[in-house]
Design a protein around this nucleic acid. Structure first.
Lengths: 107, 107
DNA sequence: GCGATATGCAACCAACTGGTTGCATATTTG
DNA sequence: CAAATATGCAACCAGTTGGTTGCATATCGC
């Protein structure tokens, strides 16, 4: 869970996910073409994505294919985002109540 | 957008959001009681949350109240998570296809 | 007004991050 | 087998991050 948030924190890694979203199952060298960085740098980013289980690697001969795994994103969305979305109205009313409490001196 | 992902990357900041979710509009000192860290440390974390617009501060006298703003989370959920969730089935079939392609030698 | 309370700001530090270079290993191809 | 291709691993380096300490400022209560 923490690994997923950390993995999503970097724009390069999000770009990698986007790239895989565009064409799934790309090899490391294919992914390198879209991101200006050394191959080893990309390997590190992919390592974090794999550790967060957002990407699943698959060896085919000397090539390593990378596939998206949408499960963690779904989980985060459900466990975290929706929880706060549900409190949307409450939060807004809280805030406006706070603002009202600020000005009880209209004299 | 990037600021939101970065802000969510730290467990302490997520804990702060959780705490505010539990009781909205808490003051800095109130938030300090739930997280073992110096007040200044928490101030820094809150600063990032405010910069990401996930938290809105509100001064009342010498106290600074902190309110949740659910808008950025909603936006992320819609713009990012759902995009990948939509590709859920496709991603899975891609992966299983990749797995199948691995073993075309059953002889 | 004065002490206590609530917060801000800046400097500093260790640890982590993002990225590189260099070299090793495995697989494919001719 | 040898050359080329695809990848891994480790060391290193600069910049950022997470957290601290120290001191300044503003507001409340007596």
């Amino acid at each position: 869970m923490d690994a997923v948030f950390k993995a999503l924190a970097d724009p390069n890694r999000r770009a990698l996910l986007d790239q895989l979203h565009l064409q799934n199952g790309q090899t490391l060298h294919q992914l390198c073409r879209h991101l200006l960085m050394t191959r080893q740098g990309i390997t590190k980013h992919l390592g974090l994505l794999v550790k967060a289980d957002l990407v699943v690697p698959l060896w085919r001969g000397r090539e390593k294919l990378h596939y998206l795994n949408p499960a963690p994103l779904k989980q985060i969305s459900e466990l975290w985002i929706d929880k706060h979305k549900a409190a949307c109205l409450r939060a807004l009313t809280d805030l406006t109540k706070g603002l009202d409490a600020l000005k009880p001196e209209p004299n």
